[in-house]
Amino acid sequence: MRVEIWSDIACPWCYIGKARFEKGLADFAHRDEVEVVHRSFELDPARAKGDTGSVVDMLAQKYGRTREEALAMEEHVASNARAEGLGYRTEGRDHGSTFDIHRLLHLARARGRQNELLDRAYRANFAEERSVYDPSVLLALAVEAGLDEAEARAVLADESAYADEVRADERQAAEFGATGVPFFVFDRRYGVSGGQPADLFTKALEQAWQGRTPAPVGAPDAPACDTDGSCEVPAN
């Protein structure tokens, strides 16, 4: 069985949702027979390379909040991340174009190191003081994930490398009707949206394995990030 996960490194609910999905997968009896493929989805595809800014300032401007209120929003998301055992910094993070990250993730998939690179990129972006929008950091993460340094450097230098693969993933997401991430597709039969609880992912895996055609799985208000750059913050 194949599970495809559309996500963006800039999305905190993708970071949290990946951890929850993996916990749900660990409780699935046939977990060793599940292939997980991570697909590209840019929350801000029009953003220029090199155009970066503070996440907290962006949230304050976007939602018309004070900086203190924006920090409180970040802290609320951080509490969800920490509940899953994930590190999360509420200050000092930036945001920008994720196109190069997605291109490197396609290289990593071709070399069998996609999950390793994705984990390192999430950790760098949300838990560490390392900007994933810095090419030198991206190259270091690729090497840490087990990729060849010269090959990764060549991909970063050639903006056409794996660009078609990124765009193909994004077109497929649009065809499925996905407007936000994370978005999970089970054997191309049905999807689960948002950072759902781990037990719901276990249930979805079981239903897909049994070959049933279930009703849509998951609450419609599950937290996610959408294409206008908004990342939902649950009330409590």
Rank of each mutant, 00 (worst) to 15 (best):
T227E: 15
R167F: 03
A224T: 15
D199S: 15
F176R: 13
G229M: 03
T179M: 08
E159A: 08
R171D: 14
D169H: 12
E206G: 11
V192D: 04
Q207V: 06
T179Y: 14
T202M: 08
A163W: 05
F183N: 13
G177C: 09
W209S: 12
E175N: 09
F176W: 14
R188T: 13
A178F: 15
F186R: 08
S193L: 06
A178C: 11
T179A: 13
F183C: 14
L205K: 02
P220R: 08
T202C: 02
A222K: 15
A208T: 00
E170A: 03
G191E: 02
Y162V: 02
A157I: 01
G177E: 14
V181Y: 10
A204N: 01
T213W: 02
F183W: 14
S193K: 07
C225I: 07
T179K: 10
S193A: 10
D228R: 13
C225H: 07
R167K: 06
P197N: 11
F183H: 13
A161I: 02
L200T: 08
A219H: 13
A178R: 10
G180C: 09
E159T: 08
T179I: 10
A208Y: 03
E206N: 07
V185I: 08
G177V: 10
Q196C: 01
R188V: 14
A219P: 10
F201K: 00
F201C: 01
E165Y: 09
A222F: 13
F176D: 14
A224I: 10
K203L: 09
Y190M: 04
A219K: 09
E159Q: 05
S193D: 05
D169A: 12
C225Q: 06
P214G: 07
Q210E: 14
F183K: 15
G211M: 15
E175T: 12
A168W: 06
F201I: 04
R188C: 15
V217F: 00
A157N: 02
Q210R: 13
G191V: 06
A222W: 13
P223A: 11
K203D: 03
T227P: 09
A222P: 07
L200K: 01
D199E: 15
G194H: 02
P220Q: 09
